[in-house]
């Protein structure tokens, strides 16, 4: 079947081509053929100037992440015909949120820099022989997904928080952080969680879910981020807006069973910052939208909520003590 590939081209060195442009190529595609095979065919037979990164061709090396019909994907494990059927066209652009060097080739410097910043290796306590630490099935299960990362950059390319906040640690490095924080042999978890609780860390995730949706190895970075947040609060790193936001929500649900919007804002922002919200509040009040300063009604059956909360929280504390005991041993 004849398929049209629309490819975003860019050449920084060509004086008349400072801007990117779309170029179309017709290729013959058969069932099972990957986008990468299509690109290779183009570069071998139609246009030797087309630049893209590739290596293993089997979704292991992580070289060929790019934007395919608007989504981060590996060219090597995305098939052409289903794409054509779904979208009516095949559109290939470089990975988003990364500087483009030429055509589909992006600069991964920022990606590696973000990873280096989180200390991407195990740092066990000096007096512990890691080979003698007993590791249970549950211990490995906790970090199994995070270990599958091939560092292709698909998650960072799809991340909506990184689109706006270039300093954000971003999903790849956060998933990697969980791989070590969640490792029973790690000795610096607390220090890691302290750093990740700072600005542009775990609390900057907007929970858009693109990372988990488009990770080709099912690392589930969003789940890793949630686990880091849970562990950060549990370890006492609560003097930041993200943790205060969560704690205010938990308090609100436990006490009245529902969300108390005004209390959430005050507890998260503090008094001074809350004052900054007054102009918007007044505007919203004109439309009857100011979240009530009045008391929010408690839901029926709040005693059930309290009983469930208490039962789960007792277990949570038990789990934490067991973990801390294991870490000490």
């Amino acid at each position: 079947m004849k398929i049209k590939f629309k490819i975003k081209r860019y050449d920084p060195h060509s004086p008349d081509r400072r801007k990117s442009y779309m170029q179309a190529y017709d290729i013959e595609a058969v069932e099972g053929m990957s986008v990468l095979e299509g690109l290779l065919k183009i570069s071998e037979q139609l246009d030797t100037t087309l630049v893209f990164r590739k290596s293993c061709r089997s979704a292991i090396c992580g070289s060929c992440a790019m934007t395919i019909n608007g989504r981060s994907k590996l060219a090597c494990n995305t098939q052409i015909l289903p794409l054509q059927k779904k979208h009516g066209e095949v559109v290939i652009e470089p990975l988003e949120n990364h500087k483009v060097l030429k055509d589909l080739l992006v600069d991964m410097t920022d990606f590696w820099h973000k990873l280096e910043k989180i200390t991407p290796y195990l740092t066990p306590p000096e007096d512990v022989d890691t080979e003698r630490v007993q590791i249970t099935k549950e211990d490995t299960y906790a970090i199994d997904d995070a270990q599958k990362c091939i560092m292709c950059g698909s998650c960072n390319g799809a991340c909506n928080a990184l689109e706006i906040d270039k300093h954000y640690t971003a999903p790849a490095a956060l998933a990697k952080s969980w791989r070590f924080v969640g490792d029973v042999r790690e000795g610096e978890s607390n220090k890691r969680l302290m750093r990740l609780s700072e600005d542009h860390g775990v609390w900057s995730c907007v929970r858009c879910g693109h990372c988990t949706e488009y990770c080709p190895k099912h690392v589930k970075p969003l789940t890793c981020i949630e686990r880091l947040r849970d562990r950060a609060i549990d370890s006492g790193h609560t003097d930041n807006m993200g943790a205060r936001h969560v704690n205010a929500m938990v308090d609100s649900v436990r006490k009245i069973g529902r969300l108390d919007e005004a209390a959430m804002m005050f507890k998260t922002l503090g008094f001074i910052r809350s004052l900054g919200m007054i102009p918007l509040g007044l505007k919203m009040q004109l439309h009857g939208k100011m979240p009530g300063i009045m008391l929010f009604p408690t839901i029926d059956g709040i005693d059930e909520v309290k009983a469930i909360y208490q039962a789960r929280n007792e277990d949570k504390v038990r789990e934490r003590l067991a973990r801390e005991k294991k870490e000490k041993e």
Binding site: R207, E226, D230, M249, V253, D300, G301, I308, R312
Partner: peptide
């Protein structure tokens, strides 16, 4: 659904995943 509680809006998961499951199960 009188007396239905808040689902946690994702924030309960950040506190404790099983707490989120428990509150939603209610």
């Amino acid at each position: 659904m009188p007396g239905a509680n808040c689902c946690g809006a994702g924030l309960l998961t950040d506190y404790d995943h099983d707490m989120m499951l428990s509150m939603n199960a209610r």
